[in-house]
C-alpha cells in the first residue's frame, strides 16, 4: 500500500512544481515528474505477487506472470508525453526568443 501512496506523493510533487514554480522550464519538469508518477502507478497496478516478466520464449513455461497490458498502455502514454513535452519545449524556446525571459511573472501580456 505504501508504495502506491509514494507514487501519488510523487504526482502531488509534480503538480506542486507546476503550480508554484515561476520558471517555464521548471514547470515543464514538473509536468514530466507528474507524468512519470502516473506511469509508475500504472505499472505498479500490473504487478502480481511473485510474477515474472510476460515474455514468452521457446524453452520456458510461464506459470505466474505480471499483467502485460498496462506495460503496453504505459509505453503509449510515454510516446504521447514525448510529443507534448517536445512541443512544450519548442514553445518555451520560442517564448525565450520573444520575451528574453523564462519568468512567467514577466510574461503576462494577456489579461482580463
Amino acid at each position: 500500500m505504501g508504495i502506491y501512496l509514494l507514487c501519488l506523493l510523487l504526482f502531488c510533487l509534480g503538480i506542486y512544481c507546476v503550480l508554484r514554480k515561476r520558471n517555464i522550464i521548471k514547470i515543464i519538469i514538473g509536468i514530466i515528474i507528474a507524468e512519470y508518477a502516473v506511469n509508475l502507478f500504472f505499472v505498479l497496478v500490473a504487478y502480481r505477487m511473485n510474477g515474472r516478466a510476460p515474455i514468452l520464449s521457446p524453452d520456458t513455461t510461464i506459470t505466474n506472470m505480471v499483467d502485460p497490458l498496462p506495460h503496453a498502455l504505459v509505453l503509449t502514454a510515454i510516446v504521447i508525453s514525448l510529443a507534448s513535452t517536445a512541443l512544450l519545449v519548442a514553445i518555451a524556446m520560442r517564448i525565450y526568443e520573444k520575451y528574453g525571459t523564462f519568468d512567467i511573472t514577466k510574461i503576462k501580456e494577456l489579461k482580463g
Partner: peptide
C-alpha cells in the same frame, strides 16, 4: 508564433497536459 500566441499556447498546453494526467 507571435508573442501572445506563444504565451497562450504555453498556458493552454501546460494546463491541458495536467488535465490529461
Amino acid at each position: 508564433t507571435e508573442k501572445h500566441e506563444l504565451e497562450a499556447a504555453f498556458k493552454y498546453a501546460a494546463m491541458s497536459t495536467v488535465g490529461s494526467l
